[in-house]
Simulated scan of single mutants.
Amino acid sequence: MKCIRRAMSSIPQYDTRLLKVKPESIIFSKNGSLPQITDKETESNLQQASNELKLLNVIGFPTETVYGLGGSALSDQSVQSIYKAKNRPADNPLIVHISSIQQLKSKLLPQDYEIPPIYEKLIAKFWPGPLTILLPNDPKNSPISSYVTGNQDTFAVRMPQHPVARAIIAISDLPLAAPSANSSTKPSPTLAKHVMHDLQGKIPLVVDGGSCNIGVESTVVDGLSSPPMLLRPGGISLEEIKSVGGPEWENIQIYKKTGGVEENEKVKTPGMKYKHYSPNAKVILFINCGDGLKAMQDYIEKHKLNPQNIALLKSKQFKDLENISIIKNLGFKGEEISQNLFKYLREVDELEIEYIFVEGIDETNEGLAIMNRLNKAAVDVVYM
């Protein structure tokens, strides 16, 4: 594989434009490859975004999970620009985003190749949507840039549900490699202003389609292995995969849930190896700590912390701790917590506090993906 260094030189400087669009004005027919767009400004701005992609530049755009930083998955130049803008490690592969099954077959797969039947039910239910699957890749003959796959024999692909993302991909007719549109290791962006905060001046434009409604990245599954593997929990729960996938998915395994990844080990998909989702403040994760009052107070006393330098993100059981004035309620339901997690991590971090206390939740349904992100963000975990 060609060598990419994490810290790349000669990053272009841009006067980053913020282009607003109306997602509700974008309509895809059931079998249509191109959308109908009823709002003229939205149509114009989507065309501008498409033109940047055709020039092999990269852009920020909304998906239903988080905002993505997209560039042509078929171009080494575009994918290199993604790594440069994010300062992303070179051995952290990217997910390819498509607008249709037809685009997947015509642009990315060998002629007459059939998608493995094990994915059939999952695709029928969850595409378009926050599900990523692994498919075979021939590094010597693949049209996909080796920078996307790490020169490996598989690639990860999904069809986003967000009409803006899907429209940009369809109009440009380019499958897009697109990690989250943040500086590497920082919390993923769920609003356009998060992208501007991290990447302004590093990319030509950001398409503002409002808030992401899921708030964590896609679920990644590997149906090519036996048994199938859950490589990254995300917007589709493990329970949904088992229920919809049928008997072939009943014994799905969670990849290295209790173990780490070796430094030189190749990984097949993002989120499996490096530190992620971390604000500047230190995240302290509390698990099975009841109402949290004793656990938080003990931690403050043990480490001699100033409560005025602490923010609390609570959800189902935690109570407000006296002297902590910055308190955010993530929500009670899993989908609410998922939507709010990255947004509130960023929001309280901007207040320049030193610590963020976060209440952990059960690892069921949306909780598996939420706890996956929190465990990666945390510098310390407290159990009781």
Rank of each mutant, 00 (worst) to 15 (best):
N323W: 04
K22V: 13
H97V: 03
Q80I: 13
S33E: 12
Y14S: 05
E120T: 13
G150A: 11
V207Y: 07
L293H: 09
N306I: 06
S106N: 11
E64D: 02
M384H: 11
S9I: 12
S44W: 12
L18H: 11
G234T: 09
L94P: 00
I203M: 07
A311K: 01
L330N: 07
D298R: 05
V206P: 00
Q339T: 11
V66S: 01
N51E: 15
F357Q: 00
N306W: 04
G235I: 01
N280G: 11
L53G: 05
Y113W: 03
Y277D: 00
I370N: 03
G245R: 08
Q339A: 11
I82H: 10
L330S: 08
S338A: 10
K86G: 05
K20I: 12
V381G: 08
L135I: 11
M371G: 03
I324S: 07
S145I: 04
L205Y: 02
S211L: 14
T63N: 11
G260D: 00
L351W: 05
G71Q: 05
N137K: 04
K256Y: 01
S180W: 03
A49D: 10
G201K: 03
P136I: 13
P35C: 10
R17I: 15
H194N: 12
Y147W: 09
T38A: 13
V164T: 10
K275R: 08
S25Y: 06
N372F: 10
Q253M: 07
N329W: 06
A73E: 07
K202I: 06
N340K: 02
A181F: 03
T190K: 00
E120A: 15
N31S: 14
V261T: 13
S29Q: 09
K302A: 09
F332V: 14
L191K: 06
L19P: 01
S145N: 03
P23M: 11
Q317V: 07
P35R: 04
I59G: 09
S142Q: 04
T16N: 12
Q48D: 15
S338K: 02
K140E: 15
I361Q: 04
Q13K: 12
I133D: 14
F318W: 03
V21E: 09
V379S: 15
K302E: 11
G260F: 00
L176M: 09
I361V: 14
L46Y: 09
K275W: 01
P204V: 10
S106W: 01
V381F: 04
L238G: 03
E350A: 15
S33F: 04
F126C: 04
L199F: 07
L191M: 11
Y383M: 06
L134E: 13
D112Q: 09
V358I: 06
K107I: 04
K86A: 09
C289I: 03
S145D: 08
N340L: 04
S72P: 01
P228H: 10
N264M: 05
S106F: 02
A377H: 00
Y147Q: 08
